[in-house]
């Protein structure tokens, strides 16, 4: 049995909020750079150049790369042999977010009620927390600040099994291309196929945190990823929707067994600032 204090968890969450907002992963940056080489549109090249400059400035000056520092999604994998001491795990995470968004000069982008009282909570809490229990005695925390513009362009559809591969492809491609310039292309596309409605959505969100551009290990899904990516990039939407070759940088598909009657497909879009940071305690 390993003991981990809530104080330690709060400290780690705070620093992960800053790390994610300031310092884009090298994997995502490398994909953006390769997009610059593929882009033919003059505006597209200019835009990708500015995005790369922006990444550099944010990293060097420890400033948020995008003002939309997101609603904070936090994935926790807690080992069965971990004992959290000193209070509530969830409250420790919220406290870390509260501190990070204040000390890091990050924007507070959460309203307390989605419909009737859209009043800013002023500290970016509550975080959206997903707990998963796993064997072992470590605690893994991943912070994913998720921007609103790209989240708004996401979609879920309960397809019929007879819609098959073509139905899945069409739904993903349509969702991304109809979003046009709204989600800040070039985007990363997370897709969840199977499970139940909410499981598909969870898979799509988690897919965004995969190493950028890494293919699914199943060759069938890997082929689907590359075919969908190609089709999206034939749309002409381009960087920021102003026309060009590079609309998406990668398509990440995750799958799960499903009901005999079902073929759920969820598409969660992330902008080029595809941010996440993790730590293992």
């Amino acid at each position: 049995m390993k003991e981990i204090s809530t104080q330690k968890i709060t400290e780690v969450v705070e620093s992960l909020c800053l790390e994610a907002a300031y310092n884009l992963g090298q994997d995502v940056e490398a994909l953006i750079r390769s997009g610059l080489a593929k882009e033919e549109s003059e505006f597209g090249k200019y835009i990708i150049g500015q995005i790369l400059d922006n990444i550099e400035i944010a990293r060097n000056e420890k400033t948020a790369m995008c003002q939309d520092t997101g609603i904070t999604v936090v994935y926790v994998e807690i080992g069965q042999d971990v004992h959290v001491v000193g209070g509530s795990l969830q409250e420790a995470i919220h406290e870390g977010v509260r501190k990070g968004y204040t000390s890091g000069y990050l924007r507070k982008s959460v309203v307390a009620d989605p419909l009737f009282k859209r009043i800013n909570t002023k500290d970016n809490t509550p975080a959206v927390i997903y707990l998963d229990m796993v064997p072992g005695e470590s605690l893994k925390i991943m912070v994913v600040p998720k921007g609103g513009g790209s989240e708004n362009m996401s979609a879920i559809k309960m397809l019929k099994p007879s819609d098959g591969v073509d139905g899945v492809k069409d739904f993903i491609v349509q969702t991304v291309t109809q979003a046009g310039g709204n989600p800040c292309p070039p985007v990363i596309v997370g897709v969840g196929i199977g499970g139940t409605m909410e499981k598909a959505a969870m898979l799509a969100k988690k897919a965004l945190t995969r190493q950028a551009g890494k293919a699914n290990e199943d060759p069938n899904y890997a082929r689907l990823e590359s075919e969908v990516l190609e089709k999206i990039n034939l749309s002409g939407v381009g960087p920021q929707g102003l026309g060009g070759r590079v609309t998406a940088l990668a398509v990440h598909i995750e799958d799960f067994p499903t009901h005999i009657a079902a073929l759920p497909v969820a598409v969660n879009i992330n902008c080029h600032a595809s941010r996440h940071a993790e730590a293992i305690l």
Binding site: A58, T63, A64, M65, C66, Q67, D68, T69, Y105, L106, R107, S109, G148, G149, N152, N182
Partner: peptide
């Protein structure tokens, strides 16, 4: 159309890119 990040002590404003106009 922007909701900026707060300014650090040495800044006029924090990060301040555009939001979706639609």
């Amino acid at each position: 159309y922007v909701g900026p990040c707060p300014a650090k002590p040495n800044q006029a404003i924090g990060s301040c890119g555009p939001t979706t106009s639609g």
